[in-house]
Design a protein around this nucleic acid. Structure first.
Lengths: 358, 358
DNA sequence: CCTCCGCCGGAAAACCTTTTCCTCAGAAAA
DNA sequence: TTTTCTGAGGAAAAGGTTTTCCGGCGGAGG
């Protein structure tokens, strides 16, 4: 029904459309030179009121709008920024994308998006391809190997990373302070009296894992044991890992993200495990849903739209000095949001206050 | 800190980047003519093995990638498709966008996205602007007035609508059969024994409302009363409208969408209203969350990615016949998904739930 | 009154790729 | 051997816009 034939056709035969008015048509209509039309439209050089009047009238009459390809060809810039995300369906990335888009629009930039569908290898190619079309690329690729990223950073003129640092801070990036976030969660759980915690870790190669693990190690001790449970980054992963988390007999579960916690919550409900009655649960990111869920999720808040906006600003700023001192890393500090999904452990007879037993 | 000065600079000064290799550089490097390079790369005409070899080597050595602006200028096509959405943060539109993006990628098309931020008037301008850059535009604008849409359809070469029909079916569109969906929900509720239903209606000018209201009228009768409650399309709207829905003393609430139902559920929980114990609740769309929520939401399933994919296909097919018989409307039939948020009304056996006497 | 300066507007180049047109060489047919 | 045909590759134009370079005109100063 949806024949490929039709699709092939549009790919090759693009001339079927009625031709659009060009600057030359406008010039003829207004009885001036193309140069004058351009000057009126761009405001490059002053033009007499009389001519300007005529040009504007002609533009309106013909409905003329400049051809961006021609402009781009000449200027060497496309006025577009690319965004690579693993999955637009993930509310986290959707918000980041929104942040970039809104910021870009304010400067009259278009946004190009590539969804790599969580396929690891595709990100490199997507970014490279996007860089042909855009003046810069915002890359959300938590799992790209450092080597690959380094190579990419050299091939793509204005590359900005989100939630990862490349080449030791050489490539501009906006990152969340995952270590501080995890530390805050650990502190919160410890104060509630939890002693045995399961951590549902993200994808094996996720960049943020290093910082998270640092925080976990720092928080660990004889009275605060962290059990690692392999999981992933989607709510489906969370759902699958929920059983393993339970098997650790931990009194609290830290999920890689809110999105993951969503799946955990669903599975716990199926199993008749009550949150926070039987076990506490925390997320990460504070996506919009977390406040809508029951129980409302304890998490750390990250402003995802800001992440996108700042990534854009970093891109915009990277025009400076010919990209000379391009290394610039911005860090966002997440904030603990205490809601209903965490409570003192039921097992503890007395929720002993923050007594560290050395 | 994020000075505008920096942003202005990137906008004007785009030449700071090292110049990229052109086809002429490659030609010189391979000691052939630019035409030959082009032929090797596009496969337009056969080239001797020897030359092809030389050209490919030169391309690799120089890291040459053709300038899309120049290609676009010549071909009159940009190999990009625009998507206008009211809010990428809304999982519904995020999924539609994903559908378009994935389908477009398969045909080697880029996707441009504009987020109009639910600001009504912005959609027209966004679509118009996008059409300068893209070969076609997929428009998700449920609330654009028909007149405005008609005008837009003439200005934008390949316009495809999602979830609305324009100019009496003249503009290609992918729509959900809202009437069938609402009818299915009504049937389900009636079979459960509900007689008094609150409908949380969408934005005043939403296109789908007509079809929904048709279904509602058809289902209405002495033993099936539908009370209209103004609401909106976001979960925040749902949250706000929840109280009014309760005030109708209905035994079941039909939300405009799952996204709205999310907010309703949160508010009901705050009020101590149990679903489906005290009142049944239905959604629309079956977003991924609906199955993760507790109670799992009864809804009608719409494949949002398919919506996007089919919109793309409609765009691709519209290259036919110079857009002659361009009017083509595809309808997706939604499917009732019965989950936990609906049950027979409690009023049948017990006097009344604890609904506040507002 | 003449000359010089400044400003406005037009002509043309440049941006990079594709494609048409043409040439030239080699092979096949007579 | 000569003529014709085929096929490969080069030269050049086209595509729409911006910008540089100039020419011409008017005003001001000498």
């Amino acid at each position: 029904m949806w024949s490929n034939a039709a699709m092939d056709r549009v790919r090759t035969d693009a001339g079927a459309r009625p031709p659009r008015a060009t600057i030359i048509d406008v010039a003829r209509e207004a009885a001036v030179s193309p140069a004058t039309v351009s000057r009126v439209l761009t405001g490059t050089k002053p033009v007499s009121a009389d001519l300007e009047q005529r040009v504007r009238a002609a533009v309106n009459r013909l409905g003329y709008r400049p051809n961006p390809a021609a402009q781009g060809l000449l200027r060497g810039a496309t006025h577009a920024v690319g965004v690579v995300v693993p999955d637009v369906g993930n509310p986290y990335f959707a918000e980041v994308l929104k942040g970039v888009t809104n910021a870009a629009e304010e400067s009259d930039f278009r946004t190009l998006v590539a969804d790599t569908g969580e396929k690891g290898g595709a990100e490199h190619d997507a970014a490279l391809e996007l860089s042909r079309w855009a003046d810069g690329v915002v890359l959300c690729s938590p799992r790209m190997p450092q080597r690959e990223l380094a190579k990419l950073a050299q091939a793509v003129p204005h590359l900005v990373c989100v939630n990862r640092v490349g080449r030791g801070g050489q490539v501009p990036a906006v990152v969340v302070d995952f270590e501080a976030g995890m530390a805050a969660i650990c502190r919160h759980l410890r104060e509630l009296g939890h002693r045995r915690i399961a951590y549902l870790r993200g994808p094996a190669r996720a960049w943020s894992e290093r910082a998270r693990q640092r925080a976990l190690r720092a928080a660990s001790g004889p009275d605060f044991e962290v059990l690692q449970v392999p999981c992933g980054s989607s709510s489906a992963d969370g759902r699958r890992a929920a059983d393993a988390a339970l098997a650790t007999r931990a009194t609290a579960v830290m999920a890689f993200s809110d999105y993951v916690a969503l799946g955990v919550l669903a599975r716990f409900d199926e199993l008749g495990v009550s949150v926070p009655g039987d076990v506490s649960l925390t997320g990460f990111d504070d996506i919009a849903l977390s406040e809508l869920l029951r129980p409302r999720l304890t998490t750390v808040k990250v402003s995802k739209q800001d992440l996108g906006r700042r990534a854009w600003e970093l891109f915009a700023a990277s025009g400076d000095v010919g990209g000379g001192e391009s290394g610039r890393v911005v860090t966002a500090i997440p904030e603990l949001i205490t809601r209903d999904s965490t409570a003192p452990p039921a097992t503890a007879t007395t929720p002993l206050p923050k007594t560290a037993k050395a």
